[in-house]
């Protein structure tokens, strides 16, 4: 690690307090993601439990989910994970403008995913086979889980937008950028949850 990437205080010395509190915040944030994971795991358990509760899946009167659009939409979200990864890499290496562009690309892809979700929802709700979360266990588990995930994506998009504004205002320096690390962790987490949800809803 070069001196330029060390956290410095206003006198140009290494900021030991920052190093230690960053450690705490990192650990706390990871544990937060773990407990968030449990939230999803509980609902995934509920879905699998209902799915195997006897009457076959999908329940009578409901068509299997079409994978084509979902596959495309998933790739949009996974792509945003890749751009976020390179945003952080570029920030670490001091390429600020490239970092900003990658961050903006992540936001656009994330918002695109949300748009795709909205499109898919309208298809299910107003399509041939009307499904809404009150109509049966299929709708209940699908809309609750994907809705929860969509909420997480939405929060992530808001967070990344704040990151853009903060970065433009110069909040993050080369030594002190935990906000960006946390954003990347959160965004990856949201992506990975979607890998699981995509598999169990569309592929299983």
């Amino acid at each position: 690690m070069t001196a330029a990437s060390l956290p410095l205080d206003s006198h140009g010395n290494v900021d030991q307090l920052y190093i230690e509190t960053r450690e705490l915040r990192l650990q706390g944030f990871l544990l937060f993601l773990v407990s968030d994971c449990v939230l999803f795991a509980s609902f995934i358990f509920a879905y699998l439990y209902l799915r195997n509760s006897g009457q076959g899946w999908p329940p009578p009167g409901i068509q299997r989910l079409d994978v084509a659009f979902a596959a495309w939409n998933s790739v949009v979200l996974f792509g945003s994970g890749a751009t976020m990864h390179y945003a952080l890499e570029n920030f670490k290496h001091g390429n600020f403008m490239r970092y900003m562009w990658f961050l903006l690309a992540t936001i656009v892809l994330g918002a695109g995913f949300l748009g795709g979700q909205a499109y898919e929802y309208t298809h299910l709700i107003y399509g041939e086979h009307v499904t809404w979360w009150g109509s049966g266990i299929f709708g209940a588990s699908f809309f609750t889980l994907t809705g929860m995930h969509g909420m997480h994506v939405f929060i992530g998009v808001c967070y990344l937008t704040v990151l853009v504004l903060q970065s433009a205002a110069g909040v993050y320096t080369r030594g002190k950028f935990f906000g960006i690390t946390a954003g990347t962790l959160y965004w990856h987490f949201v992506d990975v949850i979607w890998v699981v949800l995509f598999s169990i809803f569309y592929l299983l």
Binding site: W72, S74, V75, D191, V195, F198, L203
Partner: peptide, 8 residues
Amino acid sequence: LGIGAILA
């Protein structure tokens, strides 16, 4: 993420 991309 890579596994997800392969699945898609």
